[in-house]
């Protein structure tokens, strides 16, 4: 097409830009502003400029909560990727019909509400309907108790939640990978059982690093699993922020905590991006 000014297309682009700018960027920016306001027990906040919300974070309890969030998210992310990567590879080796089955299964799980997944695990870990009852039935556990809330119940919830997302992130690349490398490795004497660790893991390393970091950020933001399956001491930053904002109506403190989380997220994502760039070279 000859290069003519495309005012129509420009206006259409401007519409998309404004929508994202007004309803995505402005709220984030406004949140940063609010984090410097003074909490007001009577209303939402007082418009001034104070550092006290951030001081509260670094001086106390919230600091410890964040460290715990970081720990559970990191552990969750590693477990998810350790489970999802072999799955993605195995799925990509199936026939097209079974691949479609898995894609639909994974997409369903990815779309399914945290609330429902949390509820399902709540039941399966409960003494009246789930695994404890099964163990009792099999005579392995004489006096069963509910397995939730607990740290590991929350962990299972987190892994379950992240699993479908990560598998779907790795799967396209797994499906398109050059299989001749694996065949070559086998003909060169690598036992088929070790091709996975010797060939696949190294060749996917950059992807795995960046996916783990992305998953870390994702799990940092999970709200339902800690509240439904975890004990209060397992609660993550997300739960605390929501609690401050909705429960205590201390919006400036909630905003400050969210800003700290935003910074952590941004740094992690930047590292993930670098890892991916580095791997492509």
């Amino acid at each position: 097409m000859t290069a003519r000014p495309a005012y129509g297309a420009f206006c259409i682009g401007l519409f998309a830009f404004s929508a994202l700018a007004v309803f995505f960027v402005v709220p984030l920016f406004f949140m940063v502003v609010v984090s410097f306001y003074k909490p007001d027990p009577m209303g939402f906040y007082k418009v001034t400029f104070v550092w006290e919300n951030y001081q509260k974070f670094f001086a106390s309890f919230y600091y410890k909560v964040s460290l715990r969030s970081l720990y559970s998210s990191a552990l969750g992310a590693v477990l998810v990727v350790a489970l999802a990567f072999p799955t993605a590879i195995a799925v990509s080796n199936l026939s097209r019909k079974w691949q479609l089955f898995w894609v639909i299964l994974l997409l369903s799980l990815m779309c399914l509400s945290e609330v429902i997944i949390g509820f399902a695990w709540l039941i399966i870990l409960s003494e009246s309907a789930g695994i404890p009852r099964l163990l009792e039935f099999l005579g392995l556990w004489t006096n069963p108790r509910s397995l939730s809330p607990s740290f590991w119940a929350m962990m299972i919830g987190l892994v379950f939640l992240g699993f479908s997302v990560v598998t779907l992130m790795i799967y396209p690349q797994a499906a398109k990978r050059d299989r001749s490398i694996e065949e070559a490795a086998v003909t060169l004497g690598t036992p088929p059982s070790r091709v996975f660790t010797k060939v696949l893991v190294p060749s996917f390393r950059p992807t795995l690093i960046s996916v783990t970091l992305t998953m870390f950020v994702y799990l940092l933001g999970v709200f339902v699993m800690p509240t439904m399956l975890g004990r209060p001491k397992d609660w993550t930053m997300t739960v605390i922020i929501s609690d401050k904002a909705l429960g205590d109506a201390n919006l400036p403190l909630g905003a400050a905590l969210a800003v700290v989380m935003l910074v952590v997220t941004a740094i992690t994502l930047a590292v993930a991006l670098l890892a991916e760039r580095h791997g492509q070279r």
Partner: peptide, 12 residues
């Protein structure tokens, strides 16, 4: 993380 979006949106 959705909590950041959610808080920003609710303030907005």
């Amino acid at each position: 993380p959705p909590i950041i979006l959610a808080l920003g949106a609710s303030l907005f």
